[in-house]
């Protein structure tokens, strides 16, 4: 029910797919494993499922050591990105597979499969073959198949990756409801930060085979632990500058307060989100004059590229209603302030 990994490593010919990863997922939690492709998140998930053998480290499921346990002993449910349904079996037989290999009675199998069909809202589809289902339906069958033998944890590998936006949205909702009903410890891999933020209560961010941050969606968004996370999660402006005097950095007309511990002359990178730019048509205190160089419509918001002089630009995002009411126009003069930002010292390695 709880999942714990300690110092898990998996290398392929010197490539560190997963390197020294430790984490503990409590019973009943819903956690996202987020990272760019090649960050090792799928390998980590597959090791927990027993599909890959770690080079070193330990895996504990419900407090029992399960590093080298067979898949059967682990009792995990696994959902693949491309469903991996058995093509030659009906929906019924697909869901029943895990029960049949455990030699359960026909009566019990029938009851369990129909119960799950009801749960995935596909009652009446039991005689169909996977090829006769839509992508979303297939993935629901795959989830039902994983749930059939009553696993203690549910692992999902990019479960919505192959589906179109609309269906993804529905399935996300569905997975959330499913988790509320079953309260099963769930870990899912995704490269879509939006998905991770919306679904998970906790996010582990992986990069280059290591976990870079472990926190709630709000923590990850507002207090990125590393430079990588600041640029990976959400949109950001980046500016490179240096500490000009104790506790202060200057970039163009903007002034940023920095930690007093940073020595003068230290190279730093400051990042701030486009929606943390406060932009008005009339001057207010502490604002900087700028010119709207470019406008980009983004649906609920409008993005402006602001020319702040000295060949420097920042991007700002304003809710559409506010933007229209303020009458912002390309080429027009506006005033901007940066209301929230984060500072990362640039180390020797960059």
């Amino acid at each position: 029910m709880s999942i714990e990994v300690r110092g898990l490593c998996k290398h392929y010919n010197g490539f560190k797919a997963v390197h020294n990863v430790s984490a503990k997922l409590e019973t009943g939690s819903l956690t996202a494993l987020l990272g760019p492709s090649g960050s090792g998140k799928s390998t980590l998930l597959r090791m927990i499922a027993g599909l890959e053998v770690p080079d070193s480290g330990e895996i504990h499921l419900t407090g029992r050591e399960a590093t080298f346990a067979s898949a059967k002993e682990r009792n995990v449910g696994f959902v693949f990105q491309h469903y991996a349904l058995f093509k030659h079996m009906t929906v019924f037989e697909n869901i029943a597979f895990g029960l049949r290999v455990r030699k359960q009675g026909e009566r019990g199998i029938q009851d369990r499969v129909f119960e799950l069909l009801k749960l995935i809202q596909l009652t009446g589809y039991e005689k169909r073959y996977p090829s006769q289902l839509s992508g979303g339906q297939r993935q629901r069958v795959a989830v039902a198949r994983a749930l059939a033998p009553r696993p203690e944890v549910l692992l999902l590998d990019e479960p919505f990756g192959a589906l179109d936006a609309k269906v993804r949205e529905e399935l996300r909702e569905w997975i959330l409801r499913l988790h509320e009903e079953t309260n099963m410890t769930t870990l899912f891999v995704t490269h879509d930060q939006q998905e991770a933020m919306e679904v998970a209560g906790r996010i582990l961010i992986m990069n280059h085979g290591e976990i870079e941050q472990d926190g709630t969606p709000i923590e990850i968004f507002d207090q990125p632990a590393t430079h990588f996370i600041a640029q990976f999660v959400g949109e950001s402006n980046f500016i490179d500058t240096e500490v000009s005097e104790k506790g202060l950095a200057v970039w163009g007309p903007f002034r940023f307060s920095v930690a007093p511990s940073l020595p003068v002359g230290k190279k730093i990178r400051i990042y701030f989100r486009p929606n943390d730019v406060y932009m008005t048509a009339q001057f207010e205190t502490l604002q900087v004059r700028a010119r709207i160089a470019k406008t980009r419509f983004k649906g609920t918001t409008i993005e402006y590229k602001l020319d702040i002089g000295e060949d420097k630009y920042i991007s700002a995002q304003i809710p559409k209603g506010v933007a229209l009411a303020s009458g912002f126009k390309e080429g027009g003069e506006v005033y901007a302030a940066i209301t929230a930002f984060h500072v990362f010292p640039i180390d020797a390695e960059g």
Partner: peptide, 24 residues
């Protein structure tokens, strides 16, 4: 992938061969 799915569902080597690989 189908073999992996069968494995996680608890099937042994022989079951995987007869029920998943061979029919495919």
């Amino acid at each position: 992938e189908e073999e992996e799915a069968a494995m996680v569902l608890g099937a042994g080597g022989r079951q995987i061969f007869w029920k998943v690989t061979l029919p495919n």
